[in-house]
Design a protein around this nucleic acid. Structure first.
Lengths: 225, 225
DNA sequence: TTTCCGCTGCCAAGTACGTCACAGAACCTT
DNA sequence: AAGGTTCTGTGACGTACTTGGCAGCGGAAA
């Protein structure tokens, strides 16, 4: 397993080499291809996952079968930790959005680590607080902004986290279909498509397969407020 | 200060009497009347608050001045903890919804406690995880349910937490104006008013001043799905 | 290669909800 | 008790969005 990402993760950064090596022995490697689920809503779970490479979407299904995405997570990020501290079935389904490699850590292993290394719990608290803040952001966006605004925000957020400089702008290889993007911003695919088309028409974006190139960050950011 | 609520709070329940007494010395008492703010969006803050009595709303303001509520919190609940683990200005405004008494705890005091008492950090993790789950619930509700559905959900949630049995149903003294209720469910006051009127007309509710009596929990719950 | 299926783009129609507008009720303040 | 301010109730109207439907395109599979 590629341990480089793990070693650099804030959660484990404070550990010395010895403690880190012991920890990696506890990790379970999980490989997934696009569309495969790590766990589903309602499952019993006692494991936390760390994303080594790839992307994962956390989603929920409504009683009548519609889907909504809570978050898109990338390398270095954690998920599934809630089941550990607030024990109850999983409240979301975690699905790989691209080829993905995870490291799973069992409840007991984590607890052992927390007992011997209190700094780790501070890191966990921080990670959880950050996630809560992001979720609160999504919540206000949903109330305050119209669909084009939310699409713009989502793209900028994805650019922040997964963007790479390209010749004429920032390439955001989000790996999402427009349907998934729509579920992420809480709108219909149709409306998201129109918003994207409008942005392209204005010269702010270029669309590529499961990716966009942001050409005018400035304007897009203005539209997202 | 009334220390009973504090003593029973999960966060401090594991402490022995000696440790608890030392802790209470570190607490700052804060009293607020309806409408008074503890802190505002953008403030610098290094304190966590514990609600002894009363209710607090956490809200955000949009660039154009509209308001949205992230949560209503009651006795025994915590807020303002994010500023400690993910240091940055406050991202929400905390305002008393009724006569409210808080206990404030400074960053340093908490950290000292966490160092000597690792169990406390487990409780904090749990509290944060629970909050994240609730926020995720609100997020999906906003996407999946229409306004009447969200109003029903909000009332049931408030009933769960603040409801008291009455002669003909459950009295929910939420202390919120319809405007605030609307901000909580992310809708306009008018639409919320109409939803409430419909529920009353169907015999599911009775309205009182800043309170409702739920007469038919069953039906209301069905409508909320 | 050819076939097929998922993804994209777009039009047309219906609707839930926001905005505006006003009136009555309830609640403080003096 | 009077007066103002804040809250509630309700109708009319416009619109941003959803739903449904369909056609073209591209990539994967056979």
């Amino acid at each position: 397993m590629d341990i480089e990402v793990l070693r650099r993760a804030p959660l484990f950064a404070t550990l010395d080499d010895e403690a880190f090596r012991l920890l990696t022995d506890e990790l379970t490697e999980v490989d997934l291809s696009r569309g495969a689920s790590v766990f589903r809503e309602g499952d019993q779970g006692d494991q936390l996952y760390f994303i080594v490479s790839g992307k994962v979407k956390l989603g929920r299904t409504s009683p009548d079968g519609r889907e909504s995405l809570l978050a898109i997570l990338g390398p270095g990020e954690l998920f599934g930790e809630m089941a550990l501290f607030d024990p109850s079935p999983r409240t979301a389904t975690a699905t790989a959005v691209s080829e993905t490699r995870l490291a799973g850590l069992k409840n007991e292993s984590l607890n052992a680590l927390l007992r011997t290394r209190p700094e780790v719990s501070a890191q966990l608290l921080q990670a959880l607080a950050r996630r809560l803040r992001r979720t609160n952001d999504s919540l206000s966006d949903l109330v305050f902004s119209d669909v084009p605004g939310r699409v713009a925000k989502a793209l900028l957020d994805l650019a922040d986290r997964f963007g790479r400089p390209a010749t004429d702008g920032v390439l955001v290889a989000h790996e999402l279909t427009q349907e998934e993007l729509a579920q992420l911003v809480g709108a219909s695919r149709e409306t998201v498509n129109k918003a994207l088309a409008e942005f392209v028409q204005r010269g702010w974006l270029r669309l590529e397969a499961r990716a966009v190139v942001i050409l005018d960050m400035q304007r897009l950011r203005q539209r997202s407020r």
